[in-house]
């Protein structure tokens, strides 16, 4: 009699756990539905100039970068002594932008790369080492 009760209890616990797991998976499937991004591949790049560059070189550099295919916006910020550009990463990359700049500017140019500390504390970023993130990504990879 007792064994029968225990079996029933275990069975219902198992069924409940299974149902809750299914609910969790369905929830993740709905939540992790791939987002539609308006400008999916727009990449930002910042290039610092430790030395001042003259206005002629600066104008030439801006027009050269602006004329690159896939570059949407480019600007030079004098108080930062830095160039910022926005480009389509299916067409261009940071190296190509740097190469274009070096072809017209003789002063050194430094590509800004965020440190690990900066990456851990800025927006947007996710903790990719967490179990919840890895489980979510597993579900996403299975269904999408």
């Amino acid at each position: 009699m007792k064994t029968s009760h225990l079996k029933k209890g275990l069975l219902w616990t198992g069924i409940t756990t299974l149902l809750l797991f299914v609910v969790l998976v369905v929830h993740l499937i709905l939540v992790l539905k791939p987002k539609v991004y308006d400008n999916n591949h727009m990449q930002l790049v910042k290039i610092d100039f430790p030395e001042n560059i003259d206005t002629t070189e600066r104008s030439l550099m801006l027009s050269k970068v602006k004329s690159m295919q896939g570059v949407k916006t480019v600007n030079f910020y004098s108080d930062q002594n830095a160039l910022v550009a926005m480009y389509d990463n299916t067409i261009q990359n940071n190296e190509k932008v740097m190469a274009t700049i070096k072809s017209v500017v003789s002063s050194p140019a430094v590509l800004f790369k965020p440190s690990a500390e900066m990456l851990a504390s800025g927006c947007p970023i996710k903790n990719k080492d967490s179990y919840s993130y890895r489980f979510s990504m597993f579900i996403k990879n299975v269904f999408y």
Binding site: N89, T90, K113, P114
Partner: peptide, 16 residues
Amino acid sequence: TPLLTEVGAGNTTGLA
């Protein structure tokens, strides 16, 4: 600052 991390060609960027 993570916005300035370059992602591989064709991947969704931080900016997006």
